[in-house]
Every structure is written in structure tokens, then in C-alpha cells.
Design a protein around this nucleic acid. Structure first.
Length: 187
DNA sequence: GCAGTGATCATA
DNA sequence: ATGATCACTGCC
């Protein structure tokens, strides 16, 4: 990975051109930055993520091949992949890895927002962000945060992917425990 | 514990 | 055209 940029700069595209599990871990403590309609900017520390590794990962949307919904995942790293789940909840992901490989990291918790649907509802994120760049200071981007201790990171299986066979059990959910949310960081 | 919710996708 | 599915949430 290249040197971390100044924290007021977006994380660069090279940050995202790496394996999704590594990025999911590295995004803990990073900031999700939102610019609202009036031009005001707010920053939200990321504390929960999940990695979706590619076509071989049966929990990953990309494992079923490219569709209209998931096409962004197959594109270059550093773009947002946003989709609707259960008819009401927008899920916010950032595309990772090499172009052509459908991998991404789901942002499940940031700032005051616990849970992926609450992050998007709280920040007003919807389909309009799907396919947009996550590495420019436009409407929504990511910045480095304070370094965090590896000891404050827990890993668990991903939530809600029980259909994915052996992939359901892999520890690809990452939780930052500031102190004592519990060893597994259960929500 | 489970209903709500509606776009998306496979099947036809 | 139709039916199943779904990386969730909120209230019972």
C-alpha cells in the first residue's frame, strides 16, 4: 500500500486495488465523508465492515455472474456499489481489487449509525451513488483516520449470508471495538 | 420471533 | 408475466 495520504485527502484508488479482506480491515477507523446539499461536510468513523471477495465467494453478488444490479462490482476499484435490500434498505459498498473481479467491502457501521441500512438512511445514501467515484471529493468519499490497534479488531462470520455454504462461516466481518463492546462485537 | 417491502432476477 | 429471493430493521 502507498503511504497514507493526509487525512483531509480522499483515500486513493491504489488503496482499493487490493484484496477486499485487507481493505475491510484497514477501513476500520477510517472516515466516511459526506457532503450535503448545502456544501457542509460531515465525517463518520467506520467501525464495522464486511469483505466480499469475488466470483469464488458464494456470499458475493458477483458469484452469480454479472447482472445489471452488480455490474459496478466488476469495474475498477474505488467506486460505490449501492443496492436495495429487502425493498427498503440501501447497502453501501466500495468496489475493491482488480478490474473484472467482482469484489467489494460493505460498510455496516459508521459514526452514530449501527447497521448497514441505518448508515445509508442516516446519511441519505441511495441508488444515486451507485457507480459514483469514492476517491474524489464529490458527494461521498473516504479518508484515513487515526491508526487503531490490531487488538481492538474482532472478526466474525458475515451477517445474513447463511445460504453461502462454507463461505457463510468465513470470518470476513470486521468490527472495531473501541474498548469493551464484547469480544465479538455483536450488534 | 417475524412481518414489511419492492427491485431484481430466473424462468417461461 | 409470474414467483422467489433478499449482504435488513423494527416492533411483537
Amino acid at each position: 500500500m502507498p503511504d497514507m495520504p493526509r487525512s483531509s485527502q480522499p483515500l486513493p484508488r491504489a488503496f482499493f486495488a487490493r484484496p477486499a479482506d485487507r481493505i475491510a480491515r484497514d477501513l476500520l477507523g477510517a472516515r466516511l465523508v459526506v457532503r450535503d446539499a448545502a456544501g457542509g461536510v460531515t465525517r463518520h468513523a467506520i467501525f464495522e465492515t464486511e469483505a466480499y471477495l469475488g466470483a469464488h465467494d458464494l456470499a458475493c453478488h458477483g458469484s452469480k455472474g454479472m447482472t445489471k444490479r452488480n455490474a459496478v462490482m466488476f469495474g475498477p476499484a474505488g467506486r460505490w456499489y449501492v443496492y436495495l435490500c429487502y425493498g427498503m434498505h440501501w447497502m453501501l459498498n466500495v468496489v475493491t481489487g482488480a478490474e473484472g473481479v467482482p469484489a467489494a467491502v460493505l460498510i455496516r457501521g459508521a459514526g452514530a449509525f449501527v447497521g448497514p441500512g441505518r448508515v445509508t438512511r442516516g446519511l441519505g445514501i441511495d441508488k444515486a451513488f451507485d457507480g459514483q467515484s469514492a476517491v474524489r471529493r464529490a458527494g461521498l468519499w473516504l479518508e484515513a483516520g487515526e491508526p487503531i490497534s490490531p487488538r481492538s479488531i474482532s472478526r466474525t462470520p458475515r451477517i445474513g449470508v447463511g445460504y453461502a455454504g462454507e463461505w457463510a462461516a468465513k470470518p470476513l466481518r470486521f468490527v472495531f471495538d473501541p474498548e469493551s463492546l464484547g469480544p465479538l462485537g455483536q450488534r
